[in-house]
Nucleic acid binder design. Structure first.
Lengths: 155, 155
DNA sequence: CTCAGATAGACAACCTTGTTGTCGAACAAT
DNA sequence: ATTGTTCGACAACAAGGTTGTCTATCTGAG
């Protein structure tokens, strides 16, 4: 088996996909059939203050148009509501509905369960080391990933 | 910051994206402006025996149509050549060109450099533990590289 | 040898998640 | 009041995936 540097990238992607796929399946099994982790993350961003399309776009490092599409989908499925802003005629404020809050709770529970499963497979210590190392490696960079045309040589 | 189970998924995705983005930038800087890691991985699969569209699709866990699109792109950029099979009139065999081989070499070198950078940041031992743990968790069934279209820069 | 079934690849239509570019309406500030 | 910025909307498009359908070709059972 080739131990090339690319293996690490594949392992990271594979790990994410395993978690995301299982979470999606679990959400589907619990009645949230047309939702994926990306929607969960968008809801969390809205809940934590990104209550307009433009702001959500900035928060997720995508264009406001892309954010608006996600919002349209979330609204169509009743996870968020859009209400005109009384003090700013341009803005349409976003509010996470009860349905959306329930989804967030469910998603968090599922990720916690998956986390616990992984702990039981490789041990809490090993998994904590993985998290700690990754946090050190990607934590600072992930925050800096704000620009869409991101070009950095992070040495 | 909540240490929820979802953090692990974000760390894995973030790690992949950091590596993939840097690799893409480096490839671009070295003259391969029109490729991304997914093309590198596809080339590698072709080189290791997936020398037809259908087989490549199976190898990458995507439909043969999706594989054909990737192949069309790789052919357009002269990384692979398509040649009719003498013994099977249906098949069109894939061959990685010299240009493709050069890209593969460059890609491998870049990933190795990134790997070395990470080693120097957190230590070879810690990074090896990350790889070992992930390999155990993700297993051999991990070579599915579809669209990393997830934009999940949460906080 | 023949013919039913499997396989390879092509084509078309569509989905998803992004991107630019443009626009009118509403705000802000000089 | 005019100029500039921001918000949200609309349109066009790209990349990468999906189904579904089609022809040509191979293969194996009778």
């Amino acid at each position: 088996m080739p131990r090339s540097g690319a293996d690490l990238a594949l392992l990271l992607l594979g790990g994410f996909r395993v978690l995301a796929d299982q979470a999606t399946n679990e959400l589907s099994a619990r009645g949230y059939e047309d939702v994926r982790p990306v929607h969960d993350f968008a809801l969390r961003a809205i809940l934590s203050g990104a209550d307009s399309a433009s702001e959500l776009g900035r928060r997720l490092s995508v264009t406001k148009q892309a954010a608006a599409k996600t919002i349209a989908l979330l609204e169509e499925r009743s996870y968020v509501a859009r209400e005109p802003d009384a003090t700013d005629g341009r803005r349409i404020r976003l509010r996470v509905t009860d349905h959306g809050l329930a989804l967030l709770q469910e998603g968090e529970a599922i990720f916690d369960e998956l986390h616990a499963q992984w702990q039981s497979r490789v041990g809490a210590t090993a998994l904590a080391q993985v998290e700690e190392t990754l946090r050190e490696l990607v934590g600072p960079s992930a925050i800096k990933l704000d620009a869409p045309g991101w070009s950095v040589r992070d040495l």
